[in-house]
Amino acid sequence: MTALRLKNISKSFGPVEVLKNIDLTVEDGEFVVFVGPSGCGKSTLLRVIAGLEDASAGLVEIGGVDVTLTPPAKRGIAMVFQTYALYPHLTVRGNMALGLKQARRPKEIIEKRLKEASRMLSLEPYLDRRPSELSGGQRQRVAIGRAIMREPKLFLFDEPLSNLDAALRMNTRVEIAALHRNLAASMIYVTHDQTEAMTLADRIVVMRDGIVEQVGAPMDLYNNPDNQFVAGFLGAPSMNFINAGQHGFEQAAVLGIRPEHLKISDTGPLQGHVTHVERLGADTNVLVKLNTDEMLTLRLFGQYDFEIDAPIRLGYAMKDAFLFDENGHRVK
C-alpha cells in the first residue's frame, strides 16, 4: 500500500509559485527525506501534506484515501516542528494526551499509549512538568512523543533537530532511526543537514525552487546524480566543478570530481598550488588553486602537512569524473 501519494501539487502565494507540479509516492514504512536549499518549499510541501495549507492545485492521498479536503486532525498524520511547539500551559502528560482527548478516545487507551510512548522516549520522570521546565532535547522528545501518541499513518518532521546542539542531535537522530524501525511507520522528514538525510533516509527527495530535482536512495543519488545541482548538493565538502573543455572533455561543459576522489600524483593532469589546509583529525581538506585559476578541494584521509603555496599535482580515475552539459544535465 502507499502511505502517501501526491499528484500534481502546486502552491502559490499570490503571484509567487512556491511548489510546481510535484508528484511523489511514499510507500508504507518508508522513510523519505526532503532536502534542498533554504526557501525551496520543503516546509510548504509538508504543510500541504498535513493540510495546514491548501494546495492551489493537485491531489493528496494518504493511505489510499483522498484527503485533499480533509482537515489536518482527520488525516491520520502527526507532525513534529522545529520549534517543538509544545502547549506552554499543559504538562508533558497534557501535551501528549491532547490530541487523543480531542478525538474523544477512551481514558484507558490514552493511559496505555502514554505509558508506551513515555517509556520509548524515557520521558517517565518528566510527565508532570511544564515545557518551560525541560531542556531543549527533552522538549523535542515530548514533541515526538505527542506525535507517537496519535499512532498516525504518516509522521511528518520539519527540521526537528536543528535547534539542538551537535551531541544531542546525534542522539536524537539515532532515536528517530530506532523509532522508525520499531514502529515500522511511514515518515517524511525535512532537513538541510546532509548527515541526517544520508543516514536516516530510505529515499531522498532533492528539491530546488519548488520542483523535485531527483528522487532516490541516498547512495544512488550520491553515486549517480542526474544533474549538477544534485551532485553539488549532496556530499561535504561538496563536489568540485571545473571547466570540462579545458581539462580534456570536449563533449561537456562542466567536469565534476568529488574531493575524496582526487589523488595526489606526480603525473596527474591537474597542476596548482596549495592555498589553505583544514586539519580535522580524521581527515584533511586541502584547498588547491589550479594554474587555470580554478579552485579545488581535496579530501585526504588521515593527517597531512602542507606548506602554503607549495606546488601540487592531482589526478583522478576516469570512473570518478562526472560530466554535465551547459544546462547542468548529466552527460554520460
Partner: peptide, 25 residues
C-alpha cells in the same frame, strides 16, 4: 508561533480553541 497554532490544528483544536487556549494566554 505558527508552529504552535498548527500543532493545535493537527491535534484537532478548533479555531476558537486555538484562539482562547493557545493564543490568548
Amino acid at each position: 508561533s505558527d508552529d504552535l497554532k498548527n500543532a493545535g490544528r493537527i491535534d484537532g483544536l478548533s479555531e476558537y480553541a486555538i484562539f482562547f487556549r493557545l493564543a490568548l494566554p
